[in-house]
Write a protein that binds this DNA or RNA. Structure first.
Lengths: 121, 121
DNA sequence: CAGTATCCCGATGGATACTG
DNA sequence: CAGTATCCATCGGGATACTG
């Protein structure tokens, strides 16, 4: 497993390591979609993420794959078909995402802000 | 409240917003220490974070303060004395940090890795 | 369809030194 | 003690265009 992200080499603690794993502009949302939809193709996922360029989407997916959160299945057909889905490992992080979302919702409210699009419930 | 960090303006969802709040090389650990020690002075905190420069520590503390996680109390004495402690708001995130840490510990074990320094329990 | 290839920018954070 | 001041390297990520 290569060193790819900033503080992977020497995680100060498991908590920091975990934060590093799900950092990334779209990772949380990607995991969320795979969690509720089960399996999605590349462009299907892409359509859910307005503003995300293919380049970045690929990158985030590859990182999630390296970290064993998701699997990438390539079907040898024309046109290409690639499916992404959560691993069992990936599913274990579901509760954390929910908790982050719940806490954040409360925080935004307490600060008089409002979540723009409720991508995760 | 000024726009300071990358995705504050339009959080895709509360979950992403929350992640952005506790992103930062040392924020998780800072919160953890304040959580268990209650109140700490600048250098006292600094000593717990080998590798963290004063410059960066100040920055992270200021951000945490802006986000209402901590308070900064300056005592008008010589030599200077400044204390940092969690707000009630800050304390509400404690359970999340624990959960991130617990999950991360399991993840590191399952991947055959080992947390370097167990900064958070 | 599922990506690559380039180019580019701003934010984050490290190193080092200095100060009221 | 609790910071500032500078300078600098890196990285995440955006824009745009192209392809097997």
């Amino acid at each position: 497993m290569p060193k790819r992200r900033k503080y992977d080499e020497v995680p100060a603690c498991a908590m920091v390591a975990t934060l590093n794993l799900i950092n990334g502009r779209w990772k949380g949302v990607i995991l969320y979609y795979l969690l509720i939809k089960g399996t999605m193709r590349f462009n299907e996922l892409h359509r859910q993420l307005p503003g995300c360029t293919p380049r970045l989407l690929v990158k985030q997916l590859r990182e999630l794959e390296e970290d064993a959160f998701i699997t990438r299945t390539v079907y040898p057909v024309v046109p290409p078909k690639v499916e992404y889905s959560l691993t069992d490992e990936g599913r274990t992080i579901g509760p954390i995402l929910s908790q982050l979302n719940d806490w954040g919702t409360g925080w935004l409210e307490r600060r008089g802000l409002r979540p723009k699009a409720a991508a995760a419930a």
